[in-house]
Design a protein around this nucleic acid. Structure first.
Lengths: 350, 350
DNA sequence: ATGAAAGCGCTAACAT
DNA sequence: ATGTTAGCGCTTTCAT
């Protein structure tokens, strides 16, 4: 006949084990542990003592099963290397910790199938809510799965999703850059951007076009390049732009990685910035200030927009928890700001 | 009398709902969904069809309750802004996704209480395993909680923890830097490092001391600074070092953030690198190459060590799942390598 | 091949 | 204040 040992060595003690050890019922233990009313102070102490001795750890799964909602919040992003992700992840982790939630992070690498798998897993875990940077070609099933959940879109927005989005107005950021360069006298301005299948891609390109139009500047197709937002692409396209004849007198990079690649490309030429070429980047990692010359760029209010997105999500969750109807939330588009350092100057005299 | 609607609009359909809709028992549904033996092909199809129509999503909590282990892996790190975290997080997210696990990320900011809370949450969720960059002053309870779990320490190691650690041999990296500078003729070398309560802090300082000793160079206490590994501290200490009289002819920064701060500080002086001052950084974010001059630094095999740590963890988990005894795993210390660019040169002639 | 029933660990409604 | 009981959704014997 096998029996559990009395007070020690139980591998995964449950409230029943505590109850046995104390000779009380397991519901008493539950009450004591959850700090409920109708429980004597003495009992509370004894239960906690025993729980600690036995090494009791509540089974979150069982609790979730009973209460129908977990304490999990998901973050779905294409990539982990960007400042955008880093800031969002940090702020979200902190806010989740404060609210007693766990944060599940998923990386899609812009693969819609991976995105679907992650969303599925989150729903299976009965996640409370999701912050998502949607892939450009989200599957219909993914959107369907996301519908009954608390969701906020971040940085990008996808038409299939009805959830509110917190984005940054790339168009106005790029337009401001164009404006600045035009004022300096530039006429031939190059632009490197994302493909038009991303909401960010179309927005920033639109900003470029409108900015140029506003200053009566013609847009030469050869000076506008779109492709994957990688450093490699930024490097290659910047190099290509600089081989045009006549070459542009200024270049706008419309992504943090493109900016890095673009700067790399200029390093391989004899061009002196800003005398021979003006450059405006996108995003503002700390190292842009350390370049020679320090790079002018479009600043992004990453912290602010992350906070906004998370607050939206938490408000949705709170409403749902309390059974209130989820008030429709308006999407938010934050304004970037131009940071002028020393990488722009009037164009060289031909 | 209230009844559930027959086939549509059930908020969170369970296998029972599917069973009802099909007029079969819920265990049949379970079998069909889990692709088990002893189930007719026809039934499998019908069940899956119905499940999809009803929008069924398995309840991971209930499944975990039954099977006693979840599909969650935890990553506990002090900060999310570092390349170290970014690389680890990316690789871990990918490997977890491939293995069908979810990744829970927690940020401690080096607060032991926060660390404890995160470990507790992970244990409550019956996490399969944890990759942890331990805080310097881990609580005894945290170590206790971690003991029965699959754990790998990463980047730092803590004496309370018995789990294997994958670290990078900072001592040898810094020693290599000292060696390189000594060969160039430097005698007065400054060092900015972490406090001695971190394993990384003591290691890198030891590397400095040993390197200096090896070349018969005296260590001036005023040229050795230890403190928080922030950019601010790096900036302040580098500035302080440069105000010594006579000032050091070379400076070694022993952290990525310290490196950034150190470079910032040199920018505020008239010193020309490497003519007036040699600088060696730590870690190798892409932008170091873009500085003028490109910075020499200690390269870190971040990807490699992340992969190693994760493989260790997955092996532990696999062994546990299969009931095999967990084979004792040896800790691993990877060798960094010196990356020579253009920020070092012989010292100026006094 | 399918159904009936038990039980994972927990909370909460209902007794006492 | 404490005990009894039911049931959350699922997997898994054990019958049939």
């Amino acid at each position: 006949m096998r029996t559990k040992k009395a007070t020690a060595g139980i591998s995964n003690p449950t409230i029943k084990d505590i109850a046995n050890a104390l000779g009380v019922s397991h519901s008493t233990v539950s009450r004591a542990l959850n700090d409920q009313r109708h429980i004597s102070k003495d009992m509370k102490v004894r239960v906690r003592q025993a729980a600690s001795e036995l090494g009791y750890i509540v089974n979150a799964g069982a609790r979730t099963l009973r209460q129908a909602n977990s304490a999990l919040v998901g973050l779905i992003a294409p990539d982990v290397m960007s400042e955008l992700f880093a800031v969002m992840c940090k702020v979200l982790a902190l806010r989740c910790a404060r609210a007693g939630y766990q944060l599940a992070v998923s990386i899609t690498e812009d693969d819609p199938a991976v995105e679907l798998a992650h969303v599925k897993a989150l729903r299976q875990a009965r996640a409370l809510g999701v912050v998502i940077i949607p892939t450009p070609h989200m599957l219909a099933e993914t959107a369907e799965l996301l519908k009954p959940t608390c969701v906020v879109q971040f940085s990008r927005h996808h038409e299939r999703l009805t959830a509110p989005a917190v984005t940054i107005d790339g168009a106005s950021g790029v337009a401001a850059a164009v404006h600045h360069l035009a004022e300096l006298g530039h006429k031939r301005i190059g632009f490197v951007g994302l493909p038009s299948d991303r909401s960010t891609g179309v927005g920033r390109l639109r900003g470029f076009m409108e900015g140029m139009a506003q200053h009566g500047l013609p847009v030469e197709p050869a000076l506008v390049r779109q492709g994957p937002g990688t450093t490699e692409f930024g490097r290659a396209m910047t190099a290509a732009l600089l081989q045009q004849n006549p070459r542009p007198t200024a270049i706008i990079l419309s992504t943090a990685d493109l900016t890095q690649g673009g700067v790399e490309a200029t390093r391989r030429t004899n061009l002196v910035i800003p005398k021979d070429l003006s450059v405006v980047g996108f995003g503002d990692p700390a190292w842009l200030r350390l370049l020679t010359p320090p790079l002018s760029t479009v600043g992004l209010t990453l912290g602010e927009s992350s906070e906004a997105a998370i607050s939206m999500l938490l408000r949705q969750i709170e409403a749902k928890e309390e059974g209130r109807p989820i008030e429709p939330q308006a999407s938010l588009e934050l304004e970037p700001y131009l940071i002028l350092r020393s990488s722009t100057a009037p164009p060289p005299k031909a």
